[in-house]
Simulated scan of single mutants.
Amino acid sequence: MRTIYPAATLAAALLFGGASVASAAPADVYAEVTAADIADPGAVIVDSPAALAAARTAAQAIAWYSSRNGSTAYQGYCEKAARLSWNRTTHHASAIEHWRSSDGARHTTGTPPRGAFVFWNISAYGHVGIADGSGGVWATSVNGAIGHARQGYFANYLGWKPGNSN
């Protein structure tokens, strides 16, 4: 059975040591899923408290990129970098496959929220990065390495999908 945990629960689990707190979470954490839970963009859908402890936040996904600023280790592997930044269990062969998949709602307007996957159609494989929430992105291939740039740095913007550890 999958359970939706509100973002506040995730933050508390991460703040107080991960799985040990998540496994001892109050009974209301396991409450029935409501429409409000589903509408919460910060909610994390997982199968267990252990999976909750492994889930990342948008800040942690951005920190993953930030801590690798200038690295060329992921050149040509933008989808892998995006997946690793969120510690995702879902794998896609390419950024364009991720964009076209049913893995998250596609949005083509508006400023992508902090931690969202941002997509461009720059090759047969596409390109993906992570939004900073202010119109910028962290991505591979920024001046030949992982870096931070304005969303318009790459041509042929496709849109964004919510970031998550699913």
Rank of each mutant, 00 (worst) to 15 (best):
Q151M: 14
S48A: 06
S94P: 04
N121E: 14
F16G: 07
G159P: 09
I38S: 09
N143H: 15
S20W: 13
H127P: 08
G147L: 11
T3L: 13
H148R: 15
G104H: 02
W120I: 06
W64D: 00
N164H: 14
A53I: 05
T57Q: 03
E32V: 06
W64L: 01
R106P: 05
S66R: 15
R150P: 04
G110V: 05
G144Y: 11
L14H: 12
H107D: 07
I122W: 15
N121R: 14
W120E: 03
A149C: 13
A131S: 15
W138R: 04
Y153A: 03
Y74A: 01
A19T: 07
A61T: 02
F16D: 11
V137R: 10
L15G: 11
L84K: 01
G133C: 12
G17A: 10
P112C: 10
G42R: 05
A95P: 03
A61P: 03
H98D: 13
H92V: 05
P41R: 07
W138P: 03
W64A: 02
H127D: 12
I146A: 01
L52E: 00
A155C: 03
G129F: 04
N87M: 03
I45C: 05
G135K: 08
A50F: 10
G152Y: 11
R88K: 15
G42V: 04
G17K: 08
A19V: 09
F117D: 14
G133P: 13
W120F: 14
A12T: 06
V137S: 06
T34W: 04
T3D: 06
T111V: 12
I130L: 07
F117H: 12
